[in-house]
Amino acid sequence: MELIKLIGVLIVVVGFALKLDSILIIFLALVSTAIVGGLGVGGFLESVGTNFVANRSMAIFVMVLLITGTLERNGLKEAAADLMRKVKGATAGRLICAFGVLRAVFGAFNTGFGGVAGFIRPVFMPMAEGAVTSHGYEANEDHMEDVKGMVAAMENITWFFFQVLFVGGSGGILVQGTLATLGYEVELIELAAAEIPIALIALVVACVFFLIKDKKLMKKYYGAKGTKK
C-alpha cells in the first residue's frame, strides 16, 4: 500500500491543528502530493490549473456579491429587524427562533442580512435585551452570554443546512463534481431537493432545543414566572 500518498492529507490535518495559514497549508499539500505522485513541475502546474478552472463554479459567489453590499446599503438589515419585531410576546428564545426561520429562508435563497458582525451584535442583541426588560426584569449578564452563544449557533445551523437548498450553491457543485469523478451523473436540483426534509428537521430541532433551553434559563436567572408577563 502506498501510504506515502497520504502525505497531503497529513499536511492538511497537522497544518490546521498548528493553526498555520489555510492557504499555505493547501499550497504545501498540493506541492507535496505532486512530488509524491511524481508529477514534475509541468504536470503539477497543469494539474492545479485544470482543477482550479474546473472548479470555477465555486467563484459564483463573486457574482452574487455584486448585489449583497448594495442590498445592505438599501436597508435589507433594517427590513429584517422590522420583520422580527412582529414576534408576539417576545422572549430571547422566541427571538432566536424568529431569527432562525428568517435566516433559514434567506439561506435557502443564498443571501444573508449581516451575519454575526453585521446583524447579531448590532441589531439582535439589543432586541433580545429589550425582550427581557419588557417582562420587567433587568437583563442578566450570564443569561445574555447564553443568548449570544445560542443565536450564533442558530446562525451556523440554519446557514449550514439551508444554503444547500440553493440550486447552484458551492456544496452541491462540489458533490456533483465528486460524484462525476466516480461516474455518477446527478443534477444540482436533485441534490438540493434531497436536502429539503433534512433542512426542515434541523430547523425544528434547533428551535425546540433553544426554546427549552431559554425557558430553563429564564427560570434560573429570573425566577419561576420566567416567561410570563
Binding site: M1, E2, L3, K5, L6, G8, V9, V12, S22, I23, I26, A29, L30, T33, A34, V36, G37, L39, S47, V48, T50, N51, F52, A54, N55, R56, M58, A59, F61, S170, L174, G177, T178, T181
Partner: peptide, 22 residues
Amino acid sequence: SMLPQLLACLGGVFTQAGVGDV
C-alpha cells in the same frame, strides 16, 4: 473566500494522485 475553490482543487489533485484509493 478562495478556500472552498482551493480545497476543491486540492481534492481533485488528491484524487488524481490516488489518495482516495489508499
